[in-house]
Simulated assay, not measured.
Amino acid sequence: MAGLSAALGLPYTDAVVIAGSLVLGITSGVLGAFAVLRRRSLVGDAVAHATLPGVCVAFLVAGAKDVPGLLVGAALAGLVAALLMVGIERASRIRPDAAIGVVLSGFFAIGVVLLTHLSNSADADQAGLENYLFGQAAGLLERDIAVMAALAAAALVVVAVLRRALTTTLFDPGYAGSIGLPVRALETLMTALLVVAVVIGVRVVGAILMVAMLVVPTAAARQLADRFGAVLVLAGLIGAAVGVTGALTATRAQLPTGPVVVLTGFVVVMAALLLAPGRGVVWRARRLAARRRTVLRDAVLAHPDAPVTGLRDRLVRAELRRRGLLTRDGALTPAGEAAAREAAERRALWTAWLEHGSSIRLPDAREPDPTDLRGSLGDDAVAQLRARAGKGAADA
């Protein structure tokens, strides 16, 4: 850590905090993806809250704040809570969200009771246990980073080795079972990996905010990638960036690390939701506006002599005049006539799609664009549509 401190030009404490946040970001990004894509994000929240009684019990057993021992207690409590949630779902009529709520509230209440009991005791060694609730990255030591890094490395190796089996079980457990994969064991393993991520993060962001670090990287990565492998890599990179950026901001502003890291992640997710290419709100709004302009232009080109109906119609006609498609007296120029023929062809293709689209063979799932059917579906699909439309006209 002294070498890292010198390399970063930061004090020892700041270097340790940044290293811990980096390990947390990568691990929670990759391992949290399995919970988010299984729609089990709140399981991570319940597991994080369940670590508190585990820490307290481990302290009562050991009688000292031995970090590896406390983390073992947190891991065991988190695993018990996760398995209990699964058991409640499978053995009763309680819905998954209710099972999560029952386990989360029960374990967290036990943790608060134990923490209060320890705080009222005469044992001075218990001071600082509440940091597992709210997080205290500044209290990390070099040996803590070593333990976190070892846990993270082991979990990531498991993911790398079993990625195909985990991916199959994640998205299609029925098919996974039909090809002989141990579905129950793999689902339990995914839950155990989630517990590992939580155990790594409770010292940095605390049990209350840990769920954000499990969700944020995948939520942002999912806006930027479609393939699961790419989502895993992006989630790890985004988690690392969020952790390091948040830690640097917190150390510079002398603010608590955990909340600042989570706020940084929130900003990243909002930016991805707004600006992601192809999926962001801004991109979709621009595409919708462009489609509307195209429809209005096609309508004017089809009927240039129609009366002007409002401001939007005037603006469209002004644009067509600037592009040399419409004369000042409202007549089509030669270029405008060519554009009108193209618009008529697009309308004919769209009509053919509405009538015969269900019988067209496409290589994959594609969304047809009414204003650019050829670009969205491809030349082969357009040729099939023309053939179907021509056959339908001949039969009529």
Rank of each mutant, 00 (worst) to 15 (best):
L24Q: 06
L115I: 10
A98S: 14
F59I: 01
G128V: 11
L79Y: 11
L84F: 12
Y12S: 13
M85H: 09
L181P: 03
A35L: 15
T13C: 03
E337H: 11
A396E: 09
E142G: 10
D369R: 00
V244F: 06
L209Y: 04
V216P: 04
L301W: 05
G106T: 14
L118Q: 01
Q384W: 07
E367V: 15
R279G: 00
G106C: 01
A77W: 07
A6F: 13
G330L: 03
L104R: 05
L332W: 04
L385K: 06
K65M: 11
I200Y: 08
A50Y: 02
R297N: 01
S178V: 08
A225W: 05
A77L: 05
L315M: 09
A299G: 11
A247Y: 05
D97K: 02
L288G: 02
V195E: 00
L181M: 08
R314Q: 12
R366T: 13
R322N: 07
A230Y: 12
V86E: 15
R164V: 12
A338N: 09
R93I: 10
V161A: 04
G135D: 12
A74I: 12
L193P: 04
D380Y: 13
V308G: 00
P334T: 11
R95W: 10
A335F: 02
F228L: 08
A331T: 09
D66I: 14
R314E: 10
H303C: 06
G236C: 03
R388I: 02
V157I: 15
P363Q: 03
G236L: 07
G336V: 09
G63N: 04
D395W: 15
S28Y: 07
G44R: 05
D329A: 04
R203C: 03
G174F: 06
R90H: 08
R287I: 11
R297K: 06
L209R: 02
Y132R: 03
A62L: 12
P334G: 03
R279W: 08
A290L: 06
R164T: 14
L83K: 11
L84C: 12
A343C: 06
D45W: 04
R143Y: 08
T371E: 13
L71V: 09
G78H: 08
G239W: 11
I360R: 02
V205S: 01
L170G: 04
T13V: 14
A7W: 15
L248D: 03
A197T: 11
V382A: 06
D66G: 09
T167I: 06
V183E: 01
S359W: 14
R164F: 01
R39N: 13
E367N: 10
L42P: 00
Q384Y: 10
V55P: 00
D172Y: 09
V202W: 05
V147F: 10
A271T: 15
A138K: 08
A58T: 09
R222T: 14
S105Y: 13
V86Q: 14
A272P: 02
A365N: 13
L377Y: 01
D123I: 04
R184L: 09
S121Q: 11
D329P: 00
T245F: 03
D123P: 11
L133K: 09
A394G: 07
A225V: 03
L166K: 07
V211W: 01
G29Y: 00
D172T: 05
G3V: 14
G73W: 12
